[in-house]
Design a protein around this nucleic acid. Sequence first.
DNA 1: AATGTATAGTTGTCTATACCAATATTATTT
DNA 2: AAATAATATTGGTATAGACAACTATACATT
Lengths: 246, 246
Amino acid sequence: MINKNSPIPLYYQLEEYIKELIEQGDLKPGDALPPEREYAEEYKISRMTVRQAFTQLVNEGYLYRIQGKGTFVSERKIEQPLQGLTSFTEDMKARGLEPGSQLIHFDIIPAPIGAAKQLKIAESAPIYEITRIRLADGIPMALETNFISTELIKDLTVEIVNQSLYAYMEDQLKLTIDSSSQIIEASIVSKEEAEYLQISEGAPVMLIQNITYLEDGTPVEFVKSVFRADRYKFMIQKKRQKPSGN
Amino acid sequence: MINKNSPIPLYYQLEEYIKELIEQGDLKPGDALPPEREYAEEYKISRMTVRQAFTQLVNEGYLYRIQGKGTFVSERKIEQPLQGLTSFTEDMKARGLEPGSQLIHFDIIPAPIGAAKQLKIAESAPIYEITRIRLADGIPMALETNFISTELIKDLTVEIVNQSLYAYMEDQLKLTIDSSSQIIEASIVSKEEAEYLQISEGAPVMLIQNITYLEDGTPVEFVKSVFRADRYKFMIQKKRQKPSGN
DNA sequence: AATGTATAGTTGTCTATACCAATATTATTT
DNA sequence: AAATAATATTGGTATAGACAACTATACATT
């Protein structure tokens, strides 16, 4: 289970191992884990290292601790978007649907004022504008337009966008994605959008704007999406920030 | 700054101190903090203790670390809802609006099937059903119905609900709120809702369902809200979960 | 029966130290 | 002047141990 010769950190190995036990049902919600000291002795690692693994899992919502009693498996594990920040593709897969895309256009244009402001670049600076119909099991789910500065991301291709933009940024460009902010609102679909989405004019839709940031706060991507309300609900899980912590 | 005789943990003292520096602008976004070893020497505490404080702040989005370079203040600190989980009241205040309420009814009824399922209680078990029009600067913003089991929360009054239900649960009942999950969708307003909200029939609205959980996973409150789309947008900030961590 | 006391087991905090990995800086070589 | 190598600095991982705070239980005392 724990391999001391592996280059993978011990605390991370233990973390993944426990996560597995939970996901496979070997550890059920409410169950107490073996005490920290027991793990330490069992695997011949120090208690602090065990604590580091536990702490991560507590932060991620898998476990909770009660001083003097023990460490327990949380009732509902907080849903963890796989890559941390969910893309449409991951989102659909998680819902058991087959994601797909239909490209409307892929252009480099002078930044419109809205996108320029969100991406904190000069107005009319060149940016990619990529519009796609997003499909789930072949049925239109959303109309999505991405705005990406050509400054940060060069040589973008349709292939990259259709694969995984995030993976490309992290693996190839060594950019670390840190966080995102979203604005969600309800609206009525426009005539043009209705056609793409194959819904009747005046039907309700959800407008979602997403901005993705790097660690130093630089915005890298601005996405505007129009989701069909009859096919899409948005789910969020929030964990409380507590004064005590680690 | 750091008081070794205080019962307050050292890492927490340091954490609060650094947080203060950031919030007062003494440490600006992008600034590098003094290295961990320097803090350790400065305050005669161990480096691991400094790391514990730093780690907390990294998890809360205040700081980010780059190995070999240093630790830096984040550009935009992830918005931290004051009480961790935002209530309507806090939400409106944060938007600079004056929150208000107009009670429609406050009853104890047998749990309808939907609420019973969400709260994981027996169908037709007694629950509070509280419906209010939520106002912002005196204008209807949302229609909100709370479902709360009488089992967990006894002796609930209109006053408590109008004050702060969360504060009552934590301070009086010693229940620790841990997390919440929400489902958001777009819809068209019904005739009855339209009247309460003073909008025209068929206008777009956002339906928000919220469930609040304790640490052990017990659901304590189920809230269904209908928000006017013309007056309300929903904002979320997500922080990426990274494989490495502590 | 109620209350105090002792004890063992658990997580929480903290120290001191060591070495590794990534980055930045300086010195050296070309 | 540029490239390379060596060194220093910084965060990352890990150890071993100590004591504090809290919980639960068993037992004794009142």
